[in-house]
């Protein structure tokens, strides 16, 4: 199994919730706070935080595709 992070940037509201729960996978742009995906192919030990980030995103902008 693999997990791929898809990010719908125009939906992002710059809340930074993803960065708080998954700092290894997400960051925020300095100027406007829009999220940046640091790693779109998390390792299995990061799956939980990836799922948590997708769940807390208040804009439903993070989508995980399981392969």
């Amino acid at each position: 199994m693999s997990l791929k992070v898809e990010f719908d940037e125009p939906k992002c509201v710059a809340a930074g919730q993803c960065v708080m729960v998954a700092p290894d996978l997400f960051d925020q742009r300095d100027e406007d706070g829009v999220a940046i995906v640091l790693d779109d192919s998390p390792s299995p030990d990061q799956y939980d935080e990836a799922r948590e980030a997708a769940a807390v995103c208040p804009a439903a902008a993070i989508r995980l595709v399981e392969g």
Binding site: A15, G16, Q28, D30, D32, G33
Partner: peptide, 9 residues
């Protein structure tokens, strides 16, 4: 308001 969002962290 109108600040870089990271500053609030």
């Amino acid at each position: 308001l109108g600040m870089p969002p990271k500053a609030i962290r």
